[in-house]
C-alpha cells in the first residue's frame, strides 16, 4: 500500500478524508488492540488530519497516541459502568 500524502488527502472531500485516514489507521491499531480497534480509531479521528498524517509516518508517535487513547477509553468505560451499577 502506497504511503498516504497530504496532497492525496487534500484531493478528497473533508468527510472522506477522515474515512481515508481511518482505513489506514485501523489495521495498525487492530494489530495492537484487536478488540478496541474500532473505538480507538474513532477516538484518533478526532485529531487534526495533519497530525494523523504525521502519526502514520511515525510508528512511535502512533503507538504512544494509541496507548493514550486506550487509557482514556478505559477510564471512560470505568466511569460509565460505575454510573450504571450505582
Amino acid at each position: 500500500q502506497e504511503p498516504l500524502t497530504a496532497s492525496m488527502l487534500a484531493a478528497a472531500p473533508p468527510q472522506e478524508q477522515k474515512q481515508i485516514l481511518g482505513e489506514r489507521l485501523y489495521p495498525l491499531i487492530h494489530a495492537m488492540h484487536p478488540f478496541l480497534a474500532g473505538k480507538i480509531t474513532g477516538m484518533l479521528l478526532e485529531i487534526d488530519n495533519s497530525e494523523l498524517l504525521l502519526m502514520l509516518e511515525s510508528p512511535e508517535s502512533l503507538h504512544s497516541k494509541i496507548e493514550e487513547a486506550v487509557a482514556v477509553l478505559q477510564v471512560h468505560q470505568m466511569s460509565e459502568s460505575s454510573h450504571k451499577s450505582a
Partner: peptide, 26 residues
C-alpha cells in the same frame, strides 16, 4: 436530561462510511 456519552467514542468500521463526527469544519 440524559447523557449521550454512553456511545462515545463512535466506532470506526473499515469499509463502512465514517460518520462519527459529522460537524467537522473543513
Amino acid at each position: 436530561s440524559g447523557s449521550s456519552s454512553v456511545n462515545w467514542p463512535p466506532e470506526f468500521r473499515p469499509g463502512e462510511p465514517w460518520k462519527g463526527y459529522p460537524n467537522i469544519d473543513p
